[in-house]
Simulated assay, not measured.
Amino acid sequence: MEAPRHDDPLRVGAYSVLARLEAEAEHGSPERRFIVRGGVGDTLIARLPRPDTDPTRWAIEAEGARRLSIPGFLPVGEVGGGGAEPPWCTAPYVPALPLPAALRAHGGPLPGPVVRALGAALARTLATAHAQGVTHAGLSPAAVLLTADGPRLSCLGAVRAAAPDGEHRSGLPGLDSGSLAPEQAAGGRPRPPGDVYALGAVLAYAATGHTVPERDELPDFLREPVTACLSRDPARRPQAHQLLTHPDPAGPMPLPASVVVALAHQSAQVLAAELPVPAHRIDR
């Protein structure tokens, strides 16, 4: 949780901005995320497109996400904006850290058991989405929000929002090049194998701190699956459900104590946060 910058909005729709969910856009985050509060005290996560991206395409993806109900996806409640106001959408607030922020809080890559549990949770979410005919098309380290109840995926449709099919997407703002499958970078239609490629990059990042490590940098339990996920040939990648080698674990995903402390600190900051005083108000 970071204080808003001078160029951040003071309000999103009817909500006042309390803080940024993260400092700067990291690892290809295609959207800005804020913690906001309404007049009746409800606290939400508000998401807006980056200033250098196409707001129309982003709004289409936000509306599409609102119609989905997939466990593990960050739900979209309200969609707004238009005209002079940039598009936005909201999700219920729970204390959450983007994966890069979690690594910073921990002081480096996450422990093996945490990475295992993260991989299982994300594979399960993608397998559910793919079985429903949904391609996430936006998975990257910044898209993964760690909560006490497990990871939540945001940034749905970032690849589709960045550029239409047939247009080269390499180097576009808001896309993490290390998580973007080669066929999608070349303008191909986002399909499930691209999500699997991104999953491999996310797990490599969680275990090493970067999305394209050397094979020897990966822990033993990740070398084979991550190498398969990162194959340049989509046909050689496993399907998401094939990466599920263990049943659903009992209880929430294990988190390092440092990450739990950071989540608790964020929660306390949000509870203590006061609504910003409008600039035109004069106290008497």
Rank of each mutant, 00 (worst) to 15 (best):
S258E: 09
G41T: 07
D149Q: 15
S258D: 09
T227P: 00
M253G: 08
E224A: 15
P173A: 06
W58S: 09
G209K: 09
P4I: 01
V36L: 10
P164I: 01
R33H: 09
R57K: 12
D149P: 04
A102H: 00
L18T: 02
L275E: 08
P254K: 06
V114L: 00
G83V: 12
A250S: 15
H168Y: 10
P113T: 13
L126I: 11
E63D: 14
P278G: 11
R124V: 05
V196T: 04
H280K: 00
V115Y: 05
G112P: 04
P87E: 09
P111A: 07
P190L: 01
E183Q: 14
G77T: 11
A121R: 06
V115E: 04
H280C: 07
G178S: 13
S231I: 04
V259Q: 02
L180N: 05
T128S: 15
E214G: 15
A143N: 05
R20C: 02
E78T: 14
A105P: 07
A185S: 15
A65S: 14
H27M: 14
R116K: 13
V134A: 03
G108I: 07
L110D: 04
C155Q: 13
P151Y: 05
P151A: 10
R47L: 00
A117M: 05
R160P: 01
V114F: 05
A204C: 13
L243G: 08
G251Q: 11
L180M: 09
P278L: 08
P30V: 00
D8M: 02
L18C: 03
G209L: 09
V226M: 10
D220L: 15
A123D: 11
T53K: 03
P256E: 06
A101K: 00
A262G: 09
L139S: 06
L199G: 08
I282G: 09
L145E: 05
P4D: 07
S258R: 14
P141I: 04
E22S: 14
V259M: 06
V36A: 13
T245P: 02
E26R: 15
A162P: 03
T125P: 06
Q132N: 10
R5M: 02
S154M: 02
L110R: 06
D233V: 11
L244Y: 04
R104W: 06
S29V: 03
H130W: 01
A131N: 08
D283V: 14
P164Q: 09
G194H: 08
H130Q: 00
L21D: 08
F34K: 05
P254I: 07
T53I: 00
A3V: 11
E224F: 10
C89K: 02
G209I: 01
P141Q: 11
P55K: 05
E78P: 03
H280G: 01
G200M: 08
P98C: 13
V270I: 15
P113Y: 05
P193G: 03
G108S: 14
V196M: 02
L146D: 05
